[in-house]
């Protein structure tokens, strides 16, 4: 199993990247920014041929690539779909991503796929199942996975451990890494009335291989009482501040600006990516070991 996922995408250390959108292919291809990398959902590239694969191949020739899956359903009470793992492996072998990630959530059960990242009770029994699923996926892919913390909207009963405890146990048992989505931490903490800082401090820092930053929005009816992880707005000031604090504590990590809704111009996203890049560069050399 290779361990490239904790290394930065550029020889100059961890840098900031962007989610690659079809609308921005040409600008992405032409962009000369140093250290720029791109992330895509592999599910959008599981096709036989055509322009999507051709574009991805062209982008990959110049820039490092991250594959961020949404479909393995690792927190389901069933093993990951071997056909889907096969399709993922084929893409990984073709495009050689510097990192691959998935979510701590479920979306598939039986023959039904819910296009969402659904919550679950963090029980010891489910921890066993999730660890089996993560190990099975890593074995099939021949690569280490980073697992992303979810945005939570419901205070489910029946949890036997906190999310950081669950993630730490999963890291220890499977050797996987973590993709820390700081916006998700903020949204969940706000919705469940918990402390984002306490959550961040409880994570195993060494396992964190990538950071996600995105925007959120208050619910139409419930306002600030219910925040939604929309990926439809710029990163909020509160999330930037948690990001700076986290980078100062654990050292720099490859950082992605995610934007899926209300897509602005490529230049606007590049400017936002520039903020993350500047924060990463400010971290003293001593922390860049």
């Amino acid at each position: 199993m290779n361990d490239r996922s904790t290394a930065g995408p550029s020889p100059h250390g961890p840098t900031a990247g962007l989610g690659l959108k079809a609308q921005h292919y040409e600008q992405a291809l032409a962009c000369p920014a140093a250290g720029l990398w791109f992330e895509v959902h592999p599910e959008n590239y599981m096709v036989d041929g055509g322009p999507r694969l051709a574009w991805l191949e062209a982008v990959r020739r110049d820039k490092p690539l991250s594959l961020h899956g949404v479909g393995l359903s690792l927190a389901a009470d069933q093993p990951p779909d071997p056909d889907h793992l096969g399709r993922l492996k084929a893409l990984a072998d073709r495009y050689e991503p510097f990192v691959m990630s998935e979510h701590l959530a479920w979306s598939a059960r039986g023959d039904v796929y819910h296009p969402d990242l659904l919550p679950f009770p963090r029980t010891r029994r489910l921890l066993d199942q999730v660890c089996d699923n993560v190990s099975a996926a890593q074995d099939a892919l021949g690569r280490r996975l980073l697992i992303e913390n979810p945005s939570l909207y419901l205070d489910l009963r029946g949890h036997e451990m906190s999310e950081p405890e669950f993630l730490s146990a999963m890291v220890a048992r499977t050797g996987c890494g973590l993709l820390l989505d700081i916006n998700n931490v903020f949204v969940s903490a706000s919705n469940l009335k918990q402390s984002a800082v306490a959550y961040l401090d409880a994570l195993p820092a060494d396992a964190i291989g990538e950071i996600h930053l995105a925007g959120h929005a208050p619910d139409d009816r419930w306002g600030e009482d219910l925040l939604i992880d929309t990926h439809g707005a710029p990163v909020s000031a509160a999330v930037w501040s948690l990001y700076e604090r986290t980078m100062a504590r654990i050292g720099p990590r490859p950082t992605l600006i995610e934007r899926d809704e209300n897509l602005p111009d490529f230049d606007v996203l590049m400017a936002e990516r520039g903020i993350a890049d500047a924060i990463l560069r400010q971290i003293p050399e001593a922390r860049r070991a």
Binding site: P119, Y153, D155, R157, G158, R221, L226
Partner: peptide, 17 residues
């Protein structure tokens, strides 16, 4: 219901999903 705290706000969370 057995998994949720009572009140309107928990049900609102379900609507998000």
């Amino acid at each position: 219901d057995p998994w949720l705290a009572t009140g309107e706000r928990p049900q609102a969370g379900l609507w998000v999903y």
